[in-house]
Design a protein around this nucleic acid. Structure first.
Length: 491
RNA sequence: GGCGCAUUGGUGUAGUCGGUUAACACGCAGCCCUCUCAAGGCUGAGACCACGGGUUCGAGUCCCGUAUGCGCUACCA
């Protein structure tokens, strides 16, 4: 059994989007599972639209996701000579031919067919050209394209798609497609096959939009005398109105880089993407990379298109709620030692990182992250929602202030609490709680009033971890200062 | 228009060879816990398995048709 080889072959015409990431993921999972090779090939033959920046973005995205490739990146443009050579080889062998029809002629025929409501298919005019006719046109320097001569034998192309099962396509339904343009450049349909053959790809795993041109490609493989690879087509990802996901319409949510910016953990995104179109067939949804690798199979891939459940303009659910939930799971369940570097990175990129966090306050930092994580959904939440735990210049949320700092009694109580906190010799969960409850008791009011008032005074928010954890985390000195300061907020 | 693929609650999915009160998760609602919460616990609503015919004692599961959606239909990739 020879080596199994798969490839991810994006065209560098933009960012890496979630659909592409999922295709890459499935290729990667399969390769890792069977001990094969995962190849990266950049299909940059569309010179007009391909950019160096897009290639960078794609590589960066895959790297961030941890989808490491074993070979490449290969660039399709570097192989153009081979593509051309192979096409001419087919002309020699008679399975392809030069077509001198002009675009204008073809357009006219297409229009006519449309007007008559007949399916347009190239009529094979040039396929019937005699040797002398061809030589004559060549002598006149007439431009030509190279078309594949689809067998007219009433047979069909068949293959067993690993996801979609047995497929049959009649030769008569396939037109003599163009492989080489008049300017001599190869088309995707050809380049793709030649590169896959050249790179000895054994399994073509790609989006379902590649399904219709698979028969054509199989025809090319056969004419070239190359082994036909296995094909596995993946369902597409649509939006909730069943339209294709696009940057133009949906904005940044389709870009992998956006998830990185918004604080996603790569494993969480991968986990979510994997389940969008694949299921290991069990009542579990959280899988580590290793588990996904072990569990992956094409039989588990769904055949119907998946819906990316996201609504524009919902700030809280800025992407599919399930993706957010999954990321939250990862944020709160990932080993702290694994999570910490990611959080630290987040602080660094926001200029909130301090030397002491990796020295004398390293333990404090880790504990604080651990305390906050259960309520956070993304990495970004730590420096933003959690700002008050790390910086003194946090903001008081209006809603929190009006909810918890309403009672005039607090104007006296908060400073009083500050006094008692300041007097504490040991600042612990127990001592702070005792001090606070005692104050409440002596004042004849419910502890909750002071607790919630303190919450907003200390963090600017109305939600958070258990209050005494918050108090101890923020520390004696800062608690005292903030309690005094907050009293001024009360009218 | 032609060719192809698909169709289980709002979303993602499970339902091997036809016999289940159609399962799980997200989301949603309510309740509990509690010093708060977007955290945790519990409960619930929500699917006549697209529709119509068959086959069968019995179909989400098999067959045919229809509808709908999506893809392809380029000298784009």
């Amino acid at each position: 059994m020879s080596e199994i080889r798969v490839r991810f072959a994006p065209s560098p015409t933009g960012y890496l989007h979630v659909g592409g990431a999922r295709t890459a993921l499935f290729n990667w999972l399969f390769a890792r599972k069977v001990g094969g090779k995962f190849i990266l090939r950049i299909e940059d033959t569309d010179l007009e639209r391909s950019t160096k920046a897009a290639t960078e973005t794609i590589l960066q995205g895959l790297t961030w996701l941890g989808l490491d490739w074993d070979e490449g990146p290969y660039f399709q443009t570097e192989n153009i000579e081979l593509h051309r050579k192979r096409a001419y080889q087919l002309v020699e062998s008679g399975s392809s031919y030069r077509c001198f029809c002009t675009k204008q002629e073809l357009d006219a025929k297409r229009k006519e067919a449309e007007a008559n409501k007949v399916a347009y298919k190239y009529d094979g005019t040039c396929r019937r050209l005699s040797k002398s006719e061809i030589d004559a046109k060549l002598a006149e320097n007439r431009p030509f394209v190279i078309r594949f001569a689809v067998p007219q034998d009433g047979q069909a192309v068949t293959w067993n798609d690993l996801v979609y099962g047995e497929q049959v396509k009649q030769h008569s339904d396939i037109e003599d497609f163009v492989m080489i343009r008049a300017d001599g450049s190869p088309l995707y349909i050809l380049s793709n096959v030649v590169d896959d053959a050249d790179q000895r790809v054994t399994h073509v795993v790609r989006g379902q939009d590649g399904l219709p041109n698979t028969p054509k490609q199989i025809l090319i493989y056969k004419a070239l005398g190359e082994p036909v690879p296995n094909f596995a087509h993946l369902p597409l990802i649509l939006d909730n109105s069943r339209a294709k996901l696009s940057k133009r319409f949906h904005g940044d949510v389709v870009m992998v880089s956006f998830y990185q910016e918004r604080g996603f953990i790569p494993d969480a995104l991968l986990n979510f993407l994997a389940l969008l179109g694949w299921s290991p067939g069990m009542d579990r949804e959280i899988f580590s990379r290793q588990e996904m690798i072990e569990l992956f199979s094409f039989e588990g891939v769904n055949r119907s298109n998946g819906v990316f459940n996201f609504r524009k303009g919902d700030e809280r659910n800025w992407t599919d709620p399930k993706a957010l939930w999954m990321n939250a799971e990862y944020v709160s369940k990932t080993d702290l030692t694994t999570l910490l570097p990611m959080v630290i990175e987040e602080f660094k990129s926001r200029g909130m990182w301090r030397e002491e966090y990796e020295k004398e306050k390293a333990e404090w930092f880790a504990k604080t992250v651990d305390l906050l994580r259960a309520r956070y959904r993304t990495l970004v939440d730590f420096p933003t929602l959690g700002r008050a735990y790390f910086e003194d210049d946090f903001t008081y949320e209006d809603a929190a202030v009006s909810k918890n700092l309403k009672d005039p009694l607090l104007k006296e109580l908060l400073p009083a609490l500050a006094e008692r906190f300041a007097a504490l010799e040991f600042f612990t969960l127990e001592t702070t709680e005792e001090a606070l409850r005692k104050l409440a008791e002596e004042s004849g009011i419910k502890a909750g009033l002071i607790i919630n008032g303190a919450r907003t005074a200390l963090t600017g928010q109305s939600v958070g971890p258990g209050m005494f954890d918050v108090i101890v985390t923020i520390g004696q000195k800062r608690c005292v200062e903030r309690l005094k300061k907050a009293a001024q907020l009360i009218s």
